[in-house]
């Protein structure tokens, strides 16, 4: 046999025991289906909300930036053959994330033909906010996980690779970061840099990296102790080569999988800040911001009439809870699949 043919065969991921355990977990299936639903809603948001874009006058800036006229909206945004469809779906202008307002009445209006889920106070269309809010949710979740993961991998990797004093110092810093309530940190950052969705996202990323750094460092130390690392060192590979070629690729898998499951909890946290008024501005397509309309109606009204404007807050809170649930179901199933003992 040719020596070249003797390369170790990697098992295909879909045949692995881990994936089999994942697939057989009914909760994993429910979570995946829910998430698939959210992905579809986010992807087809422009097509779903085309009637709103066509009929509500304040949607004009979005149409202007897309370069279409009001009477062309339905034909353009629901036809995958048109370039505008792809522009609106893949790279919509920021103005499209502003929920169009059908008037300026402070009172919500119940679901009607024109507004299938009703309008909230200030006449913001709720269906529009929910569908485009799905996009905001994915955007916030992925970006925060991405940034904090990048910081965590660099810091945790250095800490595990270098060891010694640096490792000690880094771990003390992460101790402090992990024990300090995130909410308070976001509040300080918002006061100093001004509130907004971007500030909240940066602040969340600045808290989250500590957990990833710690986890990654632990995995690196565990991988470092394995025999193939000793073998690589024994045949004379430099420490940097051993780290980059052998330790790093073997240690990072679990972190990437587990971190990606944090998207849900990040979106829930960010929605909380939007609800408080520190995150997305009023009128932005964000579920937390949409629920904050409810504060006045529920707490302001007398006992006995809390459900007069139910559609204002029940729809977005259901979306938010289902989104968090989808990710947590997946995350739980993934954790179970990775660690058969638990």
């Amino acid at each position: 046999m040719n020596p070249q043919d003797m390369k170790p065969q990697r098992e295909a991921w879909y045949r692995s025991k881990t994936f089999k355990r994942f697939r057989r977990n009914p909760l994993a299936i429910v979570g995946s289906l829910l998430l698939l639903g959210f992905v579809l809603v986010a992807f087809f948001a422009p097509a779903i909300t085309a009637p709103q874009l066509a009929s509500i006058r304040t949607a004009r800036p979005c149409l202007r930036d897309l370069g279409i006229k009001r009477d062309e909206v339905l034909a353009e945004l629901r036809n995958p053959l048109k370039p505008t469809f792809w522009k609106a779906t893949l790279a919509p202008p920021q103005t499209c994330y502003e929920i169009p307002r059908d008037g300026f009445s402070p009172l919500p209006k119940p679901p009607s033909k024109k507004h299938p889920l009703g309008v909230s106070g200030g006449s913001y269309d709720i269906l529009y906010g929910l569908t485009w809010g799905t996009r905001t949710a994915f955007y916030v979740g992925f970006l925060v996980v991405g940034i904090s993961l990048a910081i965590g991998i660099v810091v945790g990797g250095m800490s595990g690779f270098l060891g010694g004093t640096i490792d000690n110092m880094v771990m003390r810093v992460t101790d402090v970061m992990l024990s300090f309530p995130g909410l308070v940190f976001v509040m300080i950052v918002s006061v100093i840099f001004g509130s907004g969705l971007t500030t909240v996202m940066i602040a969340l990323a600045l808290i989250r990296w500590a957990g990833y750094a710690r986890f990654f460092r632990g995995d690196i130390l565990r991988t470092k102790a394995q025999e193939f690392v000793d073998a690589a060192r024994a045949i004379g590979a430099s420490p940097l080569r051993v780290f980059l070629k052998h330790v790093f690729p073997n240690a990072i898998g679990t972190l990437l999988i587990l971190a990606s499951m944090d998207v849900g909890s990040i979106v829930l946290t960010a929605a909380g800040f939007s609800f408080l008024g520190l995150g997305a501005p009023v009128g932005y397509a964000d579920w937390g911001q949409m629920i904050s309309f409810a504060r006045g109606y529920i707490l302001g009204t007398a006992q006995g009439t809390p459900f007069d404007f139910w559609y204002v807050w029940i729809y977005p809170s259901i979306m938010l809870v289902l989104f968090g649930l989808a990710w947590n179901l997946l995350g739980d199933a993934v954790r179970d699949a990775l660690d058969p003992k638990s």
Partner: peptide
């Protein structure tokens, strides 16, 4: 276990609003 996952997925402010609306208001 399902209850725990659901409970973990509930944002505090949503739980608070639902309690105010249903239990106190309703």
């Amino acid at each position: 276990r399902v209850m725990a996952i659901v409970g973990w997925s509930l944002p505090t402010f949503v739980v608070a609003i639902w309690l105010v609306a249903w239990v106190y208001g309703g």
